[in-house]
Design a protein around this nucleic acid. Structure first.
Length: 612
RNA sequence: GGCCCUGUAGCUUAAUGGAUAGAGCAUCUGACUACGGAUCAGAAGGUUGGGGGUUCGAGUCUCUCCAGGGUCACCA
């Protein structure tokens, strides 16, 4: 049982026994004792002064006496101001370490020839038939341009969040809604027809999503020059935007598309096919995946039907021009358009259809949308819309919103060409990993394939860790150079620590030293004690990350652990330690730290290398 | 303008309402016949944007002002 819960329980018991008034264990505030004070766990006594009617010092001492006398795990106490610091018995910390490194099925009793039985699920709650199902939607790209840095934050957060929820005992379905239809797609199609000369990814070797993206850019160039021409010819800007031939053509194409025109549909299928192939490559490189993909082209009609049902039921209003609106002025929001006057769907319409289809496909208990914070308003509206349409889950949808990614020199702007392409970025990171590795010459003797694999692991580790360690809701600055720094609070630094520990363990094995699966010693110095405290925290950290929906909690924890371990590791010569009990204890600690790094990084979707 | 989010060291950032605001980068000082130095030990660097309030206690909650960003489309 977790030490914090034990203390809360027992403090409540102590107060009842000492002062005759009952207190809920949840009202007891417990935290880790700061390192400059003696003790391991600290209880706040301020809230109980009204009950005890005594000074903080006396109240703390009385509770402390009671705990030492009645709780096995508590071996001592001291009171500083209103803080009751409790000393936890070494046996508790040793038990924590054993829980992390062994399974209970261990049978051997020989202390120094034990085969390691790793507890790979340390900190993770198992998924059972009774587990609730969480659907996590993330990525959700448009098929008119390739993925960029913003999408990377989305994909990494979405994937990691799904892993964190799994570790918290939820069944998880990762899903992606591909915005494969609409005006923007038609723009690329129009441009390709006009300028393409029939080129395809097969004929020119370009990645499909990039090729389509180029035509989207070409469309905008053409469109803008047409607008400029019309303005020169004396039209107003608004009128020019409406009347430019390209946009007229695009609107016609969208109508044809919705009318299932075979020629338009074939073009659409072909170009989207290119894009999907390109996206798959990028997803694979990033190491993210999905259990179920929905396409807007399959869901928008369902959404439209739902909106029309809403009109029939009097929930929404249809204007004389045919457009349909929802009025949320009562809820403090604006009027929102649901269908255009020509009957076509807008963005939010398909979200209604997608939601309905998903709840039909899966017994969803919780729905999480990983979408940027510029769409907070959109999801408020969606929640209300679904609620009005009578879906009880409408109110419960959770919009996991995250901030934008900026560059050191400012925001990414497609107009200014400062967008960082996802594929270029990953390729660049791999290049840096390669050159740094070659300079250090640590990978000599490995095949080219092994080396490439390590460069990829390190490059992605750098990128992912840099992005995931930051609080998701904050706008973050991505510095490509700093992210791949191999020192400090970075992914590669943590990966390096893992590789070093694996190296120790390999060496131990080579020299015939068995790594203990279970330790039994009361020897603990301050550093070891600190490390064990951090190790014992991991399950709580995973739980907190699930509750806070934040991979950053895990990332920052792993870094703390690694920092503490490096200090420990540097001071002790583990394999040369003459006292076998101490040596084995330290080996067990090293092994456990490696395991937590591995488990923690798996929650972030980051791989750890055996060597680097 | 209405609503929402953010503001912490030169830079990137951490901190369930708790003790002296914690790291990394950069800067400076030390430690390499090294279980992997891609390391470690240490120094310096802060009025947590400003001001009021609640509280035994505020970076955190509240009000207000300032700065930055988002959003309020028959775009997605």
């Amino acid at each position: 049982m977790n030490i914090e819960l034990i203390i809360k329980d027992k403090v409540a018991e102590a107060i009842t026994s000492l002062y005759g008034q009952s207190v809920e264990p949840t009202q007891v505030q417990v935290q880790l004792t700061r390192s400059e004070f003696e003790g391991d766990q600290t209880v706040m006594v301020f809230p109980f002064l009204k009950i005890s009617k005594k000074s903080p010092e006396i109240t703390g001492a009385e509770i402390g006496e009671y705990l030492v006398a009645n709780v096995n795990e508590v071996s001592g106490y001291n009171v500083v101001k209103g803080f009751l610091n409790l000393v936890i018995d070494n046996s508790y910390w040793i038990d924590c370490l054993n829980a992390a490194i062994t399974t209970t099925t261990m049978t051997t009793t020989v202390p120094y020839e034990i085969i390691t039985v790793p507890n790979d699920s340390y900190g993770f709650v198992p998924v059972t038939d009774q587990s609730e199902l969480v659907m996590v939607e993330y990525s959700s790209p448009n098929t008119n341009k390739p993925l960029h840095l913003g999408h990377i934050r989305n994909n990494l957060l979405g994937f990691s969040l799904a892993e964190v929820m799994k570790a918290n005992g939820y069944k998880v379905v990762k899903t992606n809604i591909v915005n494969d239809r609409g005006v923007h797609i038609c723009k690329s199609m129009v441009a390709w027809q006009k300028f393409g000369n029939g080129e395809t990814p097969e004929t020119n070797g370009k990645k499909g999503d990039h090729l389509v993206g180029e035509y989207y850019v070409k469309f905008n160039e053409q469109y803008n020059s047409e607008i400029a021409g019309l303005i020169t010819a004396g039209r107003g800007e608004v009128q020019a935007r409406e009347e430019a031939p390209s946009i007229v053509e695009t609107r016609e194409m969208l109508l044809k598309w919705e009318a299932n025109d075979p020629e338009v549909r074939n073009l659409w299928k072909m170009m989207n096919g290119w894009v999907y192939k390109g996206f798959d490559e990028t997803y694979k490189k990033l190491g993210v995946d999905f259990d179920k993909i929905y396409y807007e082209s399959d869901t928008y009609t369902i959404g439209r039907d739902e909106v029309l049902r809403g009109v029939k039921d009097g929930i929404f209003q249809q204007e004389s021009d045919g457009s349909v609106w929802a009025n949320f002025e009562k809820e403090g929001l604006d009027k929102k358009i649901l269908l255009r006057s020509d009957g076509t769907s807008v963005y939010i319409t398909q979200d209604i259809g997608t939601a309905q289809l998903r709840y039909r496909d899966y017994p969803i208990d919780h729905m999480i949308y990983v979408v940027g914070n510029e769409q907070i308003y959109h999801f408020q509206v969606l929640s209300l819309l679904l609620d009005k349409l009578g879906y009880k889950w409408g109110k419960d949808l959770y919009h996991f919103s995250y901030g934008m990614v900026e560059l050191p020199n400012g925001r990414m702007k497609s107009r200014e060409g400062t967008v960082v392409d996802a594929d270029d970025l990953v390729a660049g990171m791999i290049e840096v990993a390669r050159s740094v590795s070659m300079e250090l010459g640590k990978l000599e003797g490995y095949t080219e394939e092994e080396k490439e694999n390590i460069y990829h692991i390190v490059a992605l580790g750098a990128l992912k860790y840099f992005i995931l360690k930051v609080d998701p809701k904050k706008t973050m600055t991505f510095n490509p150079e700093e992210s791949i720094d191999f020192n400090g609070n970075t992914g590669p630094f943590i990966q390096y620590t893992y590789a070093r520990i694996r190296s120790i363990l390999r060496k131990a094995k080579e020299t015939g030293i068995a790594i203990p699966g279970r330790v039994d010693t009361s020897f603990l110095n301050e550093k070891e004690r600190n490390l064990l405290k951090i190790i014992s925290l991991f399950p709580e950290v995973v739980k907190e990350a699930g509750k806070a929906h934040s991979p950053a909690v895990v990332a920052n924890y792993v870094y703390d652990l690694v920092k503490e371990f490096n200090s420990f590791y540097h001071d002790f010569s583990i394999l040369n330690e003459p006292d076998l009990k101490i040596r084995d204890f330290r080996l067990a600690v090293a092994q456990t730290v490696a395991k937590i790094i591995k488990n923690g990084f798996s929650l972030l979707g980051i791989q750890v290398p055996e060597r680097m």
